[in-house]
């Protein structure tokens, strides 16, 4: 039921999560559960937010949780956001660490793989 917002694939060793559309209070919890189910044992995670047209604080909370979980397990994670756009704006406003954010999917994948 979250398929319209989230899909998964593999990129090398990393689990690649594609998000798209508007992520807000109404769907963040479901999306979060779907992502956690796939990333809880992943050795590296890439979350592609370039197709996200809106991200609110509920979405931020979800990303914050996933980042915390991987940090605790010592596994790398990158959030790929465009140069501009709603997702980048929200994450910047929430002052996400610069090392988490990437603008280019391929480069982020290389970093994780290396």
């Amino acid at each position: 039921m979250t398929d319209q917002w989230v899909s998964f694939s593999r990129r090398g060793a990393a689990e690649l999560v594609h998000l798209k559309g508007e992520i807000d209070l109404a769907n963040a919890n479901d999306i979060g559960r779907a992502i956690v189910a796939r990333t809880t044992s992943a050795s590296a995670v890439l979350i592609d937010l370039t197709a996200v047209s809106f991200l609110d604080s509920a979405g931020v909370r979800l990303l914050d949780y996933i980042v915390g979980d991987l940090d605790d397990r010592g596994k790398p994670i990158r959030l790929v956001v465009g140069e501009r756009g709603a997702a980048r704006m929200t994450l910047q406003l929430c002052a996400f660490r610069a090392d988490l954010l990437a603008t280019d999917l391929d480069r982020a994948a290389t970093e994780l793989g290396g």
């Binding site: 807000d24 209070l25 991200l55 609110d56 509920a58 501009r84 756009g85 709603a86 929200t90 406003l93």
Partner: peptide, 17 residues
Amino acid sequence: DPDCLNAVLLACSEAVA
């Protein structure tokens, strides 16, 4: 403009939420 638009949408959404 888009930056202002996104900012207003975010604030409005948060306030309604």
